[in-house]
Computed example of a mutant assay.
Amino acid sequence: MIPWEVVGRARIPGSADELVLSRRGTEFSIKISGYVSELMNSRVHGSEDALAEFACSLVLDRKRPEVLVGGLGMGFTLAAALKALPHDGVAHVAELVPEVIEWNRGPLSMCAGYPLTDERVRLHQGDVAALLRASTAAYDAVMLDVDNGPEAMTHPDNHWLYSAQGLQAAMRALKPMGVLAVWSAEGDDRFTARLRKAGFDVELRTARDRPGKGARHTIWLARN
């Protein structure tokens, strides 16, 4: 078997941990230093695709829909959003870690089909939380694929996104009848209740890592 080779490291802002990018042939993996389990893998992205497909399907009837993807990762959620959006749609993407952007322009670029080269993309290097705080009625859909979901593990500040204050910021950032879509490794009844308390109508769906197999992940579709 081909051994894994570390091809990149990136310090997570505000944390002592690092993101570690490894490659084995054409397969890529990102882990957090000190953790055994993967954060993401280029062969397993069905639920990330579904996050964008579910969210975009609810706003396709709008003129020039604008969506925001929180967390670039390996580019799969962004790529799925671009595939789902019409030719006049706009996909904003916010990524906190500069090296992740460079990886998506370099070794990871082919994995999701070079989404950063699409002219409909607006790239924001920085915290998606700051973008939400600064936005009012800006997006038809906001997709949060940040960290591991509501139980944030890579960056302590990510907890704010899933707090009552973060959800209110997302509500303000959405246009009327906008959609907040949230990916999580697993379900969380407390987060569902928090969404409803914030004023969202909530639908829960699940999606698998791969077609017909693999782990099931949770996706919240919350409409304001």
Rank of each mutant, 00 (worst) to 15 (best):
G89C: 06
G89P: 06
V90Y: 15
A91P: 08
H92L: 14
V93L: 04
A94L: 15
L96N: 04
P98L: 13
E99W: 01
V100G: 12
V100T: 10
E102G: 11
W103S: 07
W103F: 15
N104C: 09
N104Q: 12
R105C: 09
L108S: 01
S109Y: 03
S109Q: 07
C111L: 10
G113C: 00
D118M: 03
D118G: 00
V121N: 07
L123D: 07
L123V: 05
G126M: 03
V128A: 06
V128P: 02
A130S: 14
L131K: 03
L132S: 05
L132E: 05
L132D: 02
R133L: 13
R133I: 14
A134E: 09
A134R: 05
S135A: 12
T136H: 06
A137W: 02
A138C: 12
Y139H: 10
A141N: 07
A141P: 01
M143E: 02
M143H: 01
M143T: 11
D147Q: 06
G149A: 11
P150F: 02
E151D: 14
M153S: 11
P156M: 08
D157R: 10
D157P: 01
H159T: 13
L161A: 08
L161H: 01
G166Q: 08
L167D: 04
L167R: 03
L174Y: 04
K175N: 13
V182K: 04
V182C: 12
E186T: 12
G187R: 05
G187L: 05
D188V: 11
D189I: 00
A193H: 14
R194N: 06
K197D: 07
